[in-house]
Design a protein around this nucleic acid. Structure first.
Length: 578
RNA sequence: GGUCCCGUAGUGCAGUCUGGAGUGCACGCCGCCCUGUCAAGGCGGAGGUCGCGAGUUCAAAUCUCGUCGGGACCGCCA
């Protein structure tokens, strides 16, 4: 090895040693012909090298520098540098590569550079300390999660990337088959099918750090391809799954931050909706939804008189920031989430109400309203009246808009949301309940008798893990009993023939003895991004894609030649004309 | 499929509302000077299809329409 030390690792303990370091020129400072400073950078940090003669090295040249580690002279110590006590003197410079000036600086000034420029030169962007750190966070998360699962007796199994298409769920990426032109594989949205079959196979405890692909629109927390900790276990209840997952999450968090989070609290889906208006509540701030239905039980205010549920939130001190135009826009926002309207009240001096609808409320109603919401001067009160779910959901959105910090900021607030409903609402055309998660979720046994009579009240053994308002992942106990599965399909209006056609290859193996089982999967980029203090998972992915899905560095996707198409039995249609 | 925001030198911006010569700032880059600097300093210099295309106008970075690219979000993501 040519290199004896890493740049950032040199300390006063190395004084007097002859060392060889390799890296990139972070900065060069020349002082005439006989003195120059070269800050040499590798992934570990930067060290200053003192060159006693003129040497033509520019930013990002790759150098091998040999010299002697020396205590810096008095008054030249750099407190901002971990190696600032020492420097490499009598430096001999060997240029390993020359470099053109990079399009942006290799430090945090490039945080402000247009992300497309960074992605086009991602190999340079990744040289920056922030990105080096983020990739290493990913690696720490992967390592901690893998060993947490192995230590708990889970077996790592790799499942196929080429699998049959399935009609359910996210849009799939499709791969044409050469040996059977006209036939197609799909890339996995998740290893869901295989992991449940592995339970039938008696693996008992399976996990995989699995690549998943979904051809859906991209977002700050969504890429076409992403990694999940995917797991499944047999002969377990909800507690067993949650605690196994929790160990891996806490281990990963501890590995990155050095602090082990407390045990993750649990709330039910109903409580999450009722208090925070969201199934992924951000617990870093209060502003809880306040129950007001009974306050207006005999009101003259028409908009409130017939509503099933009335709730409100108090944005403390926000009145001054919200002028009439902004409040009108906020009302439109509330409507876009399904509300019929939004009531706002600015609290003035002596608790007086400034609101277009205050005159419709009685004195008693106003006083009780103010008391429930803890209103004081300068506060902005927002209220929604609708059916319970709409009221909760709309206020939850408003709560996030009024108070939610950036996802990366502040403490880490994990929460398990449990007892999701088995069905969510009723399909408008068919009148049939719609599955909340997927049709294989195990109903909560306490609610079995409601399955046919009042299906939307049935809870499922289904659960999500939430961190700072981001859904990290979800899972459930699965149905392993064909009779129960048949019952759920009946409720969903799925006939025996249809079930056989759509799910047969998946469910038929259960005839041969399926153990009770359940599992979970969570997004590793989402966890890593928040642990790294990033608001966007692209920042913890080496080569991510922008919202268009087009890769600015490689140009993918691209055309293929006619021969490839012919071999696959494919022809490309002309673009549709509008 | 939809809503909103953005596009000016290698990079980040100002200029656009209220049309008047590519007017300007910072960093970077190039050259010279400089023996203790450290996101060095001094002097000088180069660098522009104002995303692209139409339109209005005597005149467009600026106004209008279209289009391309980017971002946040809604839909979508069982």
């Amino acid at each position: 090895m040519k290199r004896t030390h890493l740049c950032g690792e040199l300390t006063q303990d190395d004084i007097g040693q002859h060392v060889v370091v390799c890296g990139w020129v972070n900065r060069r400072r020349e002082h005439g012909e006989h003195l120059a400073f070269v800050d040499l950078r590798d992934h570990s940090g930067v060290v200053q090298c003192v060159v006693d003669n003129s040497v033509d090295v520019r930013s990002e040249y790759v150098l091998e520098i040999s010299g002697t580690v020396t205590q810096r002279p008095d008054g030249t110590i750099n407190e901002n540098l971990s190696t600032g006590q020492i420097e490499i003197t009598d430096a001999e410079v060997n240029i390993l590569s020359v470099a053109e000036p990079p399009p942006f600086p290799m430090d945090d000034r490039a945080d402000d550079v247009d992300e497309m420029v960074r992605l086009r030169h991602r190999y340079l962007d990744l040289r920056r300390p922030r990105m080096q750190r983020n990739l290493r966070v990913r690696s720490q998360v992967n390592a901690a999660v893998r060993s947490a699962m192995v230590n708990q007796g889970f077996v790592e199994v790799e499942t196929p990337m080429l699998m049959p298409t399935t009609p359910e769920g996210a849009r799939e990426f499709i791969v044409p088959s050469r040996q059977r032109p006209g036939s197609f594989y799909a890339l996995p949205q998740s290893p869901q099918l295989y992991k449940q079959l592995l339970m039938v196979s008696g693996l008992d405890r399976y996990f995989q750090i699995a690549r998943c692909l979904r051809d859906e629109d991209l977002r700050a927390d969504r890429q076409y391809e992403f990694m999940q900790l995917d797991m499944e276990m047999s002969f377990v209840d909800v507690d067993d799954v949650l605690s196994a997952v929790e160990v891996s999450v806490l281990d990963a968090a501890e590995a990155v931050t050095g602090v082990r989070p407390d045990e993750i609290p649990r709330i039910t889906w109903h409580e999450a909706m009722n208090r925070f208006g969201s199934d992924k509540p951000d617990l870093r701030f209060e502003m809880e939804l306040v129950e007001l239905t009974d306050v207006f039980s005999a009101t003259d205010f028409k908009a409130f008189a017939t509503a099933e549920s009335i709730k409100g939130i108090n944005a403390p001190g926000a009145a001054a920031d919200w002028g009439r135009n902004k409040l009108d826009a906020l009302t439109d926002t509330a409507k876009s989430f399904g509300a019929k309207g939004m009531v706002w009240i600015k609290v003035g001096a002596d608790g007086s109400f400034d609101s277009p609808v205050a005159k419709f409320m009685s004195e008693t109603e106003q006083q009780e309203l103010a008391k429930r919401l803890g209103a004081s001067e300068g506060d902005l009160l927002l209220m929604i009246a609708d059916d319970w779910l709409t009221t909760c959901e709309v206020l939850g959105e408003l709560r996030n808009r009024m108070g939610r910090p950036p996802v990366s900021q502040g403490p880490y607030r994990y929460v398990w949301v449990v007892d999701f409903p088995l069905f969510v609402g009723v399909d408008a055309t068919s009148g049939l309940p719609r599955p909340g998660h997927h049709p294989f979720c195990h109903p909560h046994p306490e609610d079995f008798e409601l399955l046919e009579s009042d299906p939307t009240k049935v809870r499922a053994w289904a659960y999500d893990l939430v961190l700072n308002g981001w859904e990290l992942g979800s899972g459930s106990i699965r149905i392993h009993d064909p009779e129960l599965q048949r019952r759920v399909f009946d409720i969903l209006g799925i006939s025996r023939d249809e079930a056989e056609e759509r799910f047969g290859f998946f469910l038929n193996p259960f005839k041969y003895g399926a153990p009770p089982h359940g599992g979970f999967a969570y997004g590793l980029e989402r966890l890593a991004a928040i642990l790294a203090g990033e608001e966007n998972i692209r920042e913890v992915i080496a080569f991510p894609k922008p919202q268009s899905g087009l890769d600015p560095m490689t140009g993918a996707p691209g055309l293929v030649d006619e021969g490839q198409l012919t071999e696959l039995g494919l022809a490309v249609l002309p673009p549709p004309v509008d």
